[in-house]
Amino acid sequence: MGPIVTLTGLPEWVDLLFALVIGIGFGFALEQAGFSSSRKLAGMFYGYDTTVIKVFFTAAIVALVGSQLLSYFGLLDLNLVFVNEFYVKAAIIGGIIMGAGFIMGGFCPGTGLSALSIGKIDAMVFAAGGLAGAFLFAETYPYIQNLANGTYKGPVKINEALGISPGLFTLLLIVAALVMFWIAEIAEKRFARPDITDNI
């Protein structure tokens, strides 16, 4: 029964090796999908290219469906899987900063590194900006500590907060995703721009 890393108590370097292999795979898939292009990524905000939202949401629902099925068959203990902790204010403010950085820089952190690895200059500047942000955060931490650690809600799951079963939540999310994909397709037609993928 999974997850493998927690259950087998492997030495730390094996955990890191797993991370490296999965990370390379993830980066490769991002690059292959064209996510190393900031124009493609920014397209999501302007509506002319919604690949990002479709890919990430598809990945999320496929993972959700898969993990629920594995859990039903007793092959994966979802209670051992890490759930991000929820700090309400920090999540909202951090989300706004991250969103602003995304639209200005044209990358999210993962795709930024993916673009950096194929030698894009804008990605190098983006990564430097990210590092500067991390440095700034660490240096000003004493001043924003209360904000960063305040309104702590613990590792909440949405289905528990809504009081519905994980299976029903999965179905609702799939329906929501499909509706969103449909809207995204409409937006793509409406805000269409000449194909940019050939000249990048």
Binding site: M1, V65, G74, N79, N159, S165, P166, G167, L171, L178
Partner: peptide, 23 residues
């Protein structure tokens, strides 16, 4: 879409609780 939606319906019908069960 059809595959995901169908599996979603199956999952919604299953007695999943989010808490542990004997395996």
């Amino acid at each position: 879409s059809i595959i995901l939606l169908s599996i979603g319906i199956i999952l919604a019908l299953l007695p999943l609780t989010g808490s542990r069960s004997f395996t």
